[in-house]
């Protein structure tokens, strides 16, 4: 109806919340680095590559915080970045058979018309149903909380896809030849967001987080009380999607 007006209000609110959040985060680490952007704050607490030969530490739990107030409907920078990083190329005719590790969802509350836009991907549950149901143990949770599919022993039964409450998993329906050398993917196996494990292990951010033009995605260690993400979750209201399932997800949302 009066969409233009809505948009103006929306971006105004978004800008305000963004600034407030940045200020808040700045306060949290003010003694260290006042005025830093969120993303750099997060980087400062997580960006150390693990030494060769060392396993993923069980003291760490990787997580992500997504501020939906900053996430614009129609923007899919995170999706594009994910596809490039992980070599996901759409080659099937029926899009329902293609892989989507991350997707943008538009929400509308029918009661009051309020809308949100947000990226949805594997929520990296602490108690992942996919890991519970996998017959071979191919669905697994790494010590640092990242949920992965071990394609060496995935038999392609798709039981995990039946079990996932977030529709986060895709089944590779056709032969592939465009894999990133660091991101193996292949026919007949199930796959999903890995938090860009190949980057995280080098001390980098997931590709989507890095690509978000609004800085709406924050990545870090939920277990480290000094990390940007842990501090914001301690201070601000955040939501777990399908919290009723008590999966204790690693991806948290704000503003929904």
């Amino acid at each position: 109806m009066n969409e233009p007006q809505d948009k103006v209000q929306d971006s105004g609110r978004r800008g305000f919340i963004g600034a407030a959040a940045a200020a808040g985060a700045g306060l949290g680490v003010a003694a260290l680095a006042p005025g830093l952007h969120l993303i750099e704050v997060a980087g400062a607490t997580s960006a150390t590559a693990r030494a060769a030969g060392e396993p993923a530490p069980s003291t760490v739990r990787w997580g992500m915080l997504i501020d939906t107030a900053k996430c614009a409907s129609g923007c899919d920078a995170c999706v594009q970045a994910c596809n490039t990083e992980n070599g996901i190329v759409e080659t099937v005719k029926d899009a329902r058979q293609g892989s989507q590790w991350i997707r943008k969802i538009d929400l509308k509350d029918p009661k009051n018309g309020r809308t949100h836009s947000l990226p949805m991907m594997c929520q990296h549950c602490e108690n992942p149903p996919c890991v519970d149901v996998c017959p071979t143990g191919a669905s697994m949770k790494r010590a640092d909380g990242i949920v992965l599919v071990d394609r060496h022993i995935c038999i392609g039964c798709r039981y995990c896809m039946m079990a996932c409450p977030y529709k986060a998993r895709s089944f590779v329906h056709q032969p592939l030849d465009t894999q990133n050398p660091e991101v193996p993917r292949g026919i007949g196996c199930v796959e999903s967001c890995t938090f860009c494990v190949q980057r995280v292990d080098k001390g980098m951010q997931p590709a989507c987080v890095e690509a978000c033009p609004e800085g709406a995605m924050l990545f870090g260690d939920l277990n480290d009380p000094n990390s940007g993400i842990a501090q914001r979750i301690a201070r601000e209201a955040t939501t777990q999607v399908r919290a009723d399932l008590k999966l204790n997800v690693g991806v948290r949302y704000q503003g929904i």
Partner: peptide
């Protein structure tokens, strides 16, 4: 995934 909300996405 979002009870009570109208949802739409590229993933149907």
């Amino acid at each position: 995934i979002f009870p009570g909300m109208e949802v739409s996405s590229s993933f149907f």
